[in-house]
């Protein structure tokens, strides 16, 4: 049974339908990347799975349970954590407070987990009292991912984690994402220009205008000349 199974999901904002029946699956331990042109509904799909956007039709199954009408703060409890593309930290809270908020649902003493995150992202340990709003783009992305990891998720959704980062930083974050995956966390990635992401992915989906266009192994999508030309910038 798939870890996450999105079937024929329809959703959108207000009166505007953005997703017209999107399906995808992720198995345990996989990295899956969704690519597609700007405005194809990638971010909406992420928000729909995370519960921030209502599902109008279709189902979202996570670990065998239907979460399509579960409020977002409950979804976090089930082990599915979401890192938005922008606005993904609490800017006026310190680094440490951001991590504490990530662990809001934990009842145990989670100090060790924070220490673990400091080891995993050494940049964060430099000055834990620093306000998240004053961090650089890469550091902020690390903090955002660390915040999502505080709950020990089984699946983590990353919305364009490499957008706007310097190339060196992209490799650093990508390396951390692979490390997270090796520790047993499944990863769903959304990327616009996603050669690196696809190259490390087990599978990939191409999303166009709120509908599935293609699904294949990550490497196969990279080799597909049409995909390459249309969605990967030549």
């Amino acid at each position: 049974m798939a870890l996450l199974e999105v079937s024929a999901v329809v959703s959108g904002y207000g009166q505007t339908e953005i997703l017209h029946g999107v399906s995808l699956t992720i198995d345990d331990g996989e990295i899956v990347t969704i690519i597609g042109p700007n405005g194809c509904g990638k971010s909406t799909l992420m928000k729909t799975v995370a519960g921030l956007v209502n599902v109008w039709d279709g189902t979202v199954n996570f670990r065998g349970k239907d979460i399509s009408s579960t409020p977002p703060e409950q979804i976090a409890r089930t082990g599915l954590c979401f890192v938005p593309q922008t606005r993904n930290v609490f800017p006026t809270l310190s680094i440490r407070e951001n991590l504490e908020m990530g662990a809001f649902l934990r009842k145990d003493d989670f100090t060790w987990r924070i220490e673990e995150m400091y080891r995993f992202f050494p940049d964060l340990a430099l000055d834990p009292g620093r306000r998240a709003g004053s961090l650089s783009g890469g550091q902020r992305q690390m903090l955002a991912i660390a915040r999502a990891l505080m709950l020990d998720p089984t699946l983590i959704l990353l919305d364009e984690p490499f957008a706007g980062l310097a190339p060196a930083m992209v490799y650093l974050v990508l390396d951390r994402v692979l490390e997270i995956n090796r520790s047993g966390v499944s990863v769903l990635l959304v990327e616009q220009n996603a050669r690196q992401a696809l190259s490390v992915s087990n599978r990939g989906y191409v999303l166009v205008s709120g509908e599935n266009r293609l699904e294949d192994k990550g490497s196969a999508l990279l080799d597909n000349p049409e995909v390459s030309r249309l969605y990967l910038g030549g």
Binding site: Q15, N54, S69, T70
Partner: peptide, 20 residues
């Protein structure tokens, strides 16, 4: 056509407490 207030949620019931 659409009422200002009702329009926002007429399409689908809003999740309890989960309305961003």
């Amino acid at each position: 056509r659409v009422s200002r207030v009702v329009g926002a949620s007429s399409h689908t019931p809003v999740k309890e407490g989960g309305n961003p």
